[in-house]
Design a protein around this nucleic acid. Structure first.
Length: 554
RNA sequence: GCGCCUGUAGCUCAGCUGGAUAGAGCAACGGACUUCUAAUCCGUAGGCCGCAGGUUCGAAUCCUGCCAGGCGUACCA
């Protein structure tokens, strides 16, 4: 619709120039907006104001000239208006909206999809929680944002891969091994003092128990390091399995699980450090190796190999990201917790140093989640073992409510997640509001079937009867969907879909309460059934992008 | 100190990347079910868009400076 209008205006401007009504041939882009106030029409443009200084004429005069030169062969417009400082307002004919319904219906699950990605290969890495404990709510938010963003990008024609990076190497894995070993010894009757820096959660005890059942007391006699190594391997493997299960029940599936350890095993970390050394990007100071990240805008240089010979997390991250690009991704997106934001400049620096462009890397920072129960904060700390796991949340409030609520805010603003609220099946809970539309429509369609209407299809006469303001409003609303999806992809902001759905749901509920679909007038009934079928279609599409189900019945 | 994020209705947040009279949901108050699901709807009330300057036809939106909160600022991850 917008495109059609844009063309009308553009043609009018050109014609006006050819008729010598406008002195200059220099025209700005046609920008079309949707006014907030209905009185201002369906669309408006500010083009006259933009042209004023170039044409050396008053905006209102230019508006008049443009309107005079508009030709509207398809009878799209029911009226135009000049308002305020020189806005041109356009009123669209009711009947011009009707074909939108057909587009939606014919596109089906593809309605809203586009090809703006042009098959560009893009990778989204998210969650990537360390395998030292189960996922908690914060990871849930990262999972929701990452997964939906990937879905949306894919819907917009990008070739998207979802990946999880497993930090199965380094100090914290060692600590994990220690933690399990301590519990293991404890269980075998040894009097041990459990160190504070170890992981305190009950899951460590369970893992130790499993180790004991498999190995008996064999680890008591093997060397300590070997025992820790064994426990670390076993525990991280089990934890990752648990994480996979949790994510699966959260509706998140990765294309690939990438092991940090594999970068060491294949020698890639060492090779990349060597390569950077050869390029002169690395120097030695105080016994450590430093990467000159300051040359790419970081505030200080960063250590890649410590003076004890151990590589830092940064070192493997450099190798990991290099590997991503080597695998052919043109763009790499990382979803991180906001507490890692200080890490962005050095990562960007490393990527630039390896010859990639800055804009080939993008970090989505997700702010922290404050978990509440009835308005009271719930304390959480992985180390102290006090946390509510993602699994707990899914069990308590359900996957759909959790995923939806995580996407009810811009990802850069902190989110309060109230367990009691999320569990309530009331109108406090936005997910039901949207799902309810789908269920209601399904119910009506079912009822129509009972009355012998089994096939809902485009019907000229029926659709032509959709003239109620609420009906036109619904169609206009849905017509915006493709643009919302595109913007959502472009800005990587899945919450835009959430807000769109709430809006559409609201418009439907209003309509539902005011008008009956199953009217005695058969023609009208056909038209309305077609309308709600397309609404169901759009709600379904949107919820799918968010990873939320669209129930037939509630 | 420096850097990033956030300040919009009593509360939780949107605001289409500069547009016209700033919008929702909760909470408050008053209404609507013998009719397609009341997990719904309708109405009322509620605002110096953190503060102060600047940019221009026009600012919640862009720039600068303050103020407040969160996070970061490791040879941790």
């Amino acid at each position: 619709m917008k495109q059609k209008l844009k063309k009308l205006i553009w043609d009018a401007v050109k014609t006006a120039y050819e008729d010598n009504a406008l002195p200059s041939s220099e025209f700005p882009d046609v920008e079309i907006e949707e006014p907030k106030v209905e009185k201002h029409g369906d669309f408006s443009t500010n083009i006259a104001m933009k042209m004023a200084s170039i044409q050396k004429m008053s905006p209102r005069k230019i508006s008049e000239i443009i309107i005079d030169h508009i030709s509207d062969p398809d009878n799209l417009l029911s009226g135009t208006d000049i308002a305020g400082p020189g806005f041109i307002n356009f009123f669209i004919n009711e009947s011009s909206w009707h074909p939108v319904l057909r587009q939606i219906h014919e596109a089906g699950n593809e309605f809203g999809a586009s090809d703006i990605g042009r098959g560009k290969r893009i990778q989204v890495e998210f969650v990537s929680s360390n395998p030292t404990g189960p996922l908690h709510v914060g990871h849930g938010r990262g999972a929701s944002v990452g997964d939906s963003t990937a879905n949306i990008l894919s819907f917009c024609g990008y070739d998207v891969q979802k990946e999880y990076y497993i930090n199965d190497s380094g100090r914290q894995i060692h600590t994990l091994g220690q933690s399990v070993l301590f519990r293991y010894r404890e269980q075998l009757g040894e009097d041990v003092e459990f160190p504070e820096e170890c992981y305190q959660g009950d899951y460590i005890r369970e893992l130790a128990e499993e180790v004991r059942q498999r190995e008996g007391d064999a680890l008591m006699s093997s060397g300590e390091e070997a025992a820790i190594e064994y426990c670390a391997r076993y525990a991280s493997k089990k934890i990752i399995e648990g994480i996979k299960i949790d994510l699966d029940s959260f509706g998140v599936r990765f294309n690939r699980w990438f092991s940090e350890q594999s970068l060491y095993d294949s020698g890639k970390v060492d090779a990349d450090i060597k390569e950077l050394q050869d390029k002169g990007m690395i120097y030695k100071e105080d016994g450590a190796l430093w990467f000159k990240t300051t040359e790419y805008g970081d505030e200080k240089d960063r250590v890649v190999v410590r003076n004890n010979g151990q590589t830092t997390y940064f070192a493997s991250d450099i190798a990991y990201h290099k590997d991503k690009y080597d695998r052919g991704y043109e763009k790499v997106i990382d979803v991180w917790g906001a507490d890692h934001h200080g890490y962005i400049p050095r990562m960007t620096a490393a990527i630039e140093a390896s010859g990639r462009k800055k804009d080939q890397f993008h970090v989505i920072l997700v702010q922290l989640v404050n978990l509440l129960r009835d308005g009271e904060p719930v304390a959480m700390s992985t180390r102290a073992g006090e946390f509510v796991t993602l699994d707990d949340v899914i069990r308590e409030v359900g996957k759909d409510a959790a995923r939806f609520i995580f996407l009810t805010r811009h990802h850069e603003s902190p989110l309060d997640f109230d367990l009691e609220l999320a569990r309530k099946k009331t109108n406090d809970n936005p997910v039901y509001y949207v799902q309810y539309v789908h269920a209601r429509i399904s119910s009506i369609i079912k009822k129509a079937g009972e009355r012998g209407i089994n096939h809902i299809a485009w019907d000229d006469q029926g659709v032509a009867m959709l003239r109620e303001p609420e009906e036109i409003r619904l169609i206009k609303n849905m017509a915006r969907y493709p643009e919302v999806v595109r913007n959502s992809a472009e800005f990587m902001e899945p919450h835009r879909i959430t807000f769109f759905l709430r809006n559409l749901a609201s418009a439907f509920h209003t309509y539902y309460n005011k008008h009956r679909v199953l009217e005695d007038d058969e023609v009208l009934c056909r038209g309305r059934l077609y309308l709600i079928l397309t609404i169901k279609n759009v709600i379904h599409n949107g919820l799918t992008l968010l990873g939320v189900s669209a129930p037939e019945k509630m």
